[in-house]
Amino acid sequence: MNTIRNYLDNMFLGLPQTEDVARAKKELLAMMEDKYNELKNNGKTENEAIGIVISEFGNLDELGDTLGIKQVIENKTDIPLVTYEEAKDYIDESRATAPKTALGVLLCIISPVTLLFLIGLKELNVVHAKEDLLIAAGLVVLICLVATGVLHFIRYTSKLEKYEYLKFNVFELDYKAEEMVRNIQKQDDPTYKAAVSISVVCYILSALPVIVTPLVSEIDGLSVIAVTITLIIVALSTYNLINKSSYYEPCNVLLQQGDYSAKNKSNKTFQTVSKVYWCVIVAVYLGYSFITNNWRMSWIIWPVAGVLFGAIKAISEGR
């Protein structure tokens, strides 16, 4: 009998939840149930009974007119259906790739650390090499780290590329898959929230070395080294955040909640703006830093850009 109920659920998937539709479903189920019971009583096996009931069910198209949902039934086929297996694969793969993309981001964030550290040591007079040489060495490390990070990015985000449409297109989720996703989300919610809290606290604390060092000591080199500590804390918090959000984000994507609601998906302008925005920020950061060599200040663009992005997003949603 469960098979029949599931079959009917599937047929009604995506139809508007009007009173008429609910009643039709209930009535159809009652008829199917009666037929199933009688077939079973007449000695049919479970499978035979289910087969007969389903083959004699008919076609929902017939109900379109009577239920006033003709339009919906005719358009229904346009919306892709995401099956249980697809949903499961998407969640599994997202989780598998998350630590790797997170590592890519981490490498990019800590990329200037060696450079800053060497400059700091030079100013503290700990090392006596020529400054140009130190900067060159630091830049080599920076470029290597960025390159590795970006490679990681490309390699692992491309693995998820086939699921990109889930983020940008409206789809229908199989009801069994929906149940599975909801359970996963419920189960992992505490882990995710804890991870976000820890990261946020770390982000706030990360400012401390930069603020406190000048108060404690006048030496220039120390404040540069303080920046490296800040960057490392930021990098680790971001790693944690990206990694743990893989326990949450795919569920939101599949359930079409939050950023991935059908409403937001229709807001194509914002999607484009956000892609362009981050490319511009990266270009400005690299361009400014290489031209002025002012690496010790230029990182400030990241927190500023982040907050600004939040503002842009709020404006776009408020429209």
């Binding site: 159809l28 008829m31 199917m32 009666d34 037929k35 004699e56 008919g58 109900l63």
Partner: peptide, 29 residues
């Protein structure tokens, strides 16, 4: 009620005509 009607149609026609559930329900409506 629904099933009884569909069953009697089947019996009266000696299973030559079986009315689908959706057909029956839309006729009711």
């Amino acid at each position: 009620y629904g099933y009884e009607i569909s069953k009697r149609i089947r019996e009266l026609t000696h299973e030559k005509y079986v009315m689908k559930e959706t057909t029956l329900y839309s006729a009711f409506k």
